[in-house]
Design a protein around this nucleic acid. Structure first.
Lengths: 338, 338
DNA sequence: CTGAAAGCGCTAACAG
DNA sequence: CTGTTAGCGCTTTCAG
């Protein structure tokens, strides 16, 4: 079992130099005579010295830790985002603290509090709601924050996609394939991203001379599973429905199951499309037509932007003004549509 | 924008008491005159004081942070485990740092180093391999570690399942359903968990008087997708194959696709089963028969055990001796088998 | 019940 | 090029 030197002092003592000299050779901030340098290094190795980051952080007011707040890692859009964030963080020598909030404002508030006390250098937040004021306050206090997936105005850095345009494109595609009675499976209407997806769908219908029928939009109740009965019911009530546009892939998957259980064939009897392109969508039967979001890339860009802002803050003492970055989506046609 | 008091000193000053008094009322470690107590509390609120955890950690040698090392959050068995860990951690006022290692020993080693320097209080490791020595060393140095999913001996705390017995049970089930030529889709043979699943399969065959045919076991090449061609090839070479036991659900899903693309019907023409019961398995078409692992519960137990060990260490100065906890699995029959 | 003071391990002036 | 020193903000004896 290797003893580990636990402080600069021990190393300094054994190397016969001062503690600051050791600090200097380790940080490389200052010239040190080559001879002492190598001696110190030898002792460092010999003693298996490990710098104490807590002390370093306290002194520097910087932890090299960032936090990522998401509703839940169980939601399949997040694993790729998390990977993107972490890959960049790791490369830049940051560490990431994962926070699942279940979209609970209380949990979110407590986490924010905790994270600030811990001194994380910045936060990537995918849990923003219209009501969340705390996170905007944070930014106003000069604390680095970047948003993903959800945003409401231009007051915060954000990496997002164009939900409206993507939904518009998908709906137009369905129309071009001959679908005329397209239902929509809506998510939480409080979230702008879903409101936008719904608008895109609605506007595309109108622009193509099709009526917008309120009866064709289903609203999620407690959870995505609620679409199982909802869609069964819809199809019975309105048999002319020939396609369902689900506001995300998980909902599409549940809807496909319900439809199949009704004895319908996809896409022959009815088309189903989703949104997000979660990794599993391609393995469905049939593989799901959907809007591809560059999830991993979103994570990557968010982490890059956050770290850049952290550097701005330490170097210039001030954050860049917020910038919204809109990443490209891609209509991905597979076999759940004819 | 709320100014935040950033140190005990400010609070002490404004409240007209000493810094240690403030510390005492905040930590509640000592009796403080009710009058001063409430005055301090008032100032704390007024100044919106937030304790500095870095300083606290430095002094106490405890960060209230734990780390969770996994191969990749993209692997669908991990999101539920991560949730389990985080839910317990949050409840106990810990925060969790997520580390994806891609099963790369180098990344793993660097993370361990980093985490130790940061002073995390403990590590939950799901990336152990036979070669990993570092993690055992850590435990020997008195550092709290608990393993999940993978373990090799009894030298470390671990929360696991009985892979052998579960695979044995699944194989016996297939045989009981009349399957006689059961193929096996193997994972990384270096990992004991897969070796055990293979043994369970083999032994069950033998115990039921069926031959073990080496030709029926397929080995993954680069990644799970390699089973797409592998299984197609197998079925052509050995048309008598009537079932495939995949060593995990993702492999089963890929195999189902290959089989379907071959025009085979599941389960009429051939049965397919998996292992793990990842959340998506139930949404497959047909829903997958598999071995249910209590993934969330594994995370929960791992976090509980880790935190318990952390407390043992701070209270008694020593860790409990390692304990292996084996959680129950459950054969979950759905429609991918007849 | 409260204050003074030491010190956790580190960095960054400031002197030489 | 190197050593001394002053803290970062907190907890915790030790004295009153």
């Amino acid at each position: 079992m290797a003893e580990s030197a636990t402080s600069l002092k021990e190393v300094a003592l054994k190397a016969g130099v001062s503690i600051s000299t050791v600090s200097r050779v380790l940080s490389g901030t200052d010239y040190v005579h080559e001879k002492t340098r190598s001696r110190v290094l030898a002792v460092v190795r010999e003693l298996n010295y490990r710098p104490n980051m807590m002390a370093r952080s306290l002194k520097l007011g910087k932890t090299n830790a960032i936090a990522l707040m998401i509703p839940s890692i169980d939601n399949m859009i997040f694993p790729p985002i998390v990977r993107g964030v972490e890959d960049i963080a790791r490369a830049q020598d940051y560490v990431v603290t994962l926070c699942n909030t279940d979209d609970n404002p209380d949990t979110e508030a407590r986490y924010i509090q905790k994270l600030c006390n811990m001194g994380v250098d910045g936060i990537i937040d995918a849990t923003l709601r219209k009501e969340s004021q705390r996170i905007t306050d944070l930014r106003d206090e000069g604390f680095p924050v970047v948003l993903t997936s959800r945003n409401y105005d231009n007051s915060l850095d954000a990496i997002v996609i164009d939900n409206y345009a993507s939904a518009y494109e998908m709906t137009s595609f369905l129309i071009s394939r001959g679908y005329r009675h397209i239902a929509f499976a809506m998510g939480d209407a409080q979230l702008l991203l879903y409101a936008n997806r719904l608008s895109g769908y609605t506007q595309a219908l109108l622009d193509h001379g099709l009526p917008f029928d309120k009866e064709l939009v289903m609203y999620e109740l407690d959870n995505p599973n609620s679409f199982y009965p909802l869609v069964k019911d819809l199809v019975k009530r309105i048999p002319s429905v020939d396609a369902v546009f689900a506001s995300n892939d998980l909902r599409a998957i549940i809807i496909m199951r319900a439809l199949r259980d009704l004895g319908l064939h996809i896409p022959q009897d009815i088309g189903v499309v989703g949104f997000d392109d979660i990794p599993i969508s391609t393995f469905m039967d049939p593989p799901l037509t959907t809007i591809h979001q560059p999830l991993y890339e979103i994570g990557v860009q968010a982490a890059k932007r956050l770290i850049q802002q952290i550097q701005n803050k330490t170097e210039k003492g001030i954050l860049d003004s917020p910038r919204i970055e809109i990443l490209e989506t891609k209509l991905t046609v597979r076999d759940s549509t004819k």
